[in-house]
Amino acid sequence: MSLLIDAWTVLAVFSGVFFFLAGTVGLLRFPDALTRLHALTKADNLGLGLIVFGLLPQAVDVWMALKLIVIWLLVLIAGAVVSQRVARVARAQESGQ
């Protein structure tokens, strides 16, 4: 049983790590701010989300599990605001050029 849980954790966490990789590569390689923004949100939402999913079975009590989920939600919220705002800044930047 515990082996199965550990396997799930490792699988999910490393998939999450993969999305961080995708996000970073996108942030570095994509040509303009808006597409880079697109890459970034992948890392935010999916990368952290998968890591949280992977760690959930490792939680020692229900509070820890709850905290993990709240953390993910908070990062999602922050991500949403930043995306909206950054998109606006980026557009202003591009139209100014």
Binding site: F20, T24, L27, G47, L48, A78, V82, V89
Partner: peptide
């Protein structure tokens, strides 16, 4: 631009939390 800087900062927040 500033947009990119803020994005990098955001990535850092997420990464730090992870």
């Amino acid at each position: 631009g500033a947009a990119d800087r803020i994005m990098a900062g955001q990535l850092f927040g997420t990464g730090g939390a992870a």
